[in-house]
Design a binder for these strands. Structure first.
Lengths: 202, 202
DNA sequence: TCCTTTATGTAACGATCGATACATAAATTT
DNA sequence: AAATTTATGTATCGATCGTTACATAAAGGA
């Protein structure tokens, strides 16, 4: 049974991608409905009929971001044979993705809505939850390194995951300041220089 | 010759401090004139007479921030006897300052206006310039370490300064996510674990 | 005392904010 | 063909945005 009623005249996914790019570049509160409708090529009633509200559109856009832009960064975590290589690949992919100049620099999850009081609370909480999930992914990979004997038993996986997640967050701001991929790689090198010390094998 | 005309009935510096706290908590675009006048306890004409515009008020507020909240973080750089201790004290002071719960978490310079397209361009450029100045302070201290023989001649001071500045930026986001001082100290420990590797003395 | 100067309080400016009412268009169902 | 359902375009809603006109108040200078 196909859809009833008049079919929509625009590509919903393409419009969502445009919305994602706008939120990514300008943040949640910096993006207006007028900005969105102009970029998506639709009228505001179509936007509200298809996505519900600005808040719902943002949440769906971050989901789309996670499923498209975010994948290449995080798949490296599970594929690399060692935790050390996993973290390094993770940071290198981050450097490459954050510095691409055919799309906004930095990360939508990190930069989209940082001010709880002014942005919608639900938006801010959702991004916070996603950042916490990313921390958990790093933590799981490090714990796997401990379980496999790569890292010593006393290794503080939580502290290390926090450290590397924080470095990645900082890279978003660095990228927003115009840092090249090479400049971001300098930060990656610094972060990986910490590995020996953290692993306690020096 | 004292001031001519009717004297103002509010403390200009106290009002500026209130404005700084608001911008710090909510960001530039998230803070409205109505928010400001309510917190500063004055009417909008008084605000404009005393500070010129929202943009000028923000610039003055960031200056005030740099001269008050920022000092304790950066004075550690020149006072510590070694570059290594200077960086560590710098990060420890950052951890303590960013996690205080009697004021907004994180750094106004890092979080105040990250979206060039939506925020006023001048605001964004000013914060970027201040972040670049901070990078320069780190760079100078590291170069001093090279000049004094603490660090090897081939030490890449610029890359290391970028790394530590990036870590500090990440700590702003981490602090905004509610990280305690101890949690931030875990990041500091990670960043300092990189020192041996960066200095090439391992 | 009058004049000039600066600050305050009220009230409102045009522009934009997110969101929607309404009539019309285009599809399926009966 | 008539009825139902969904989407689009126009036009606009009340609220808020940053900013300012205007009249009044409070100070020093003449």
């Amino acid at each position: 049974m196909p859809e009833r009623g008049r079919p929509r005249t625009f590509d919903r996914t393409a419009a969502l991608r445009r919305a994602m790019e706008l939120f990514w570049a300008k943040g949640y509160e910096g993006t207006s409905i007028a900005d969105l409708t102009a970029a998506m090529g639709i009228g505001s009633p179509s936007l509200y009929a298809a996505f519900g509200s600005k808040e719902a559109l943002f949440l769906e856009a971050t989901d789309y971001y996670t499923g498209t832009e975010g994948t290449e960064i995080w798949t490296a975590l599970d594929e690399a044979p060692t935790a050390c290589q996993a973290i390094e690949n993770f940071l290198r992919q981050t450097a490459k993705a954050y510095s691409r100049n055919d799309r906004p620099q930095g990360c939508l999850i990190a930069l989209g809505a940082l001010h709880q009081d002014s942005s919608s609370g639900a938006i801010c909480d959702d991004l916070r939850r996603r950042r916490a999930e990313n921390h958990t992914l790093l933590l799981r990979r490090l714990e796997r390194g401990v379980a496999e004997g790569e890292l010593p038993a006393g290794f503080d996986s939580d502290a290390a995951a926090t450290f590397y997640a924080t470095v990645q967050h900082g890279m978003s701001i660095q990228a927003r300041d115009g840092a090249s991929c090479d400049a971001l790689m300098a930060t990656v090198a610094g972060a990986m220089a910490a590995w020996q010390g953290l692993a306690g094998t020096a």
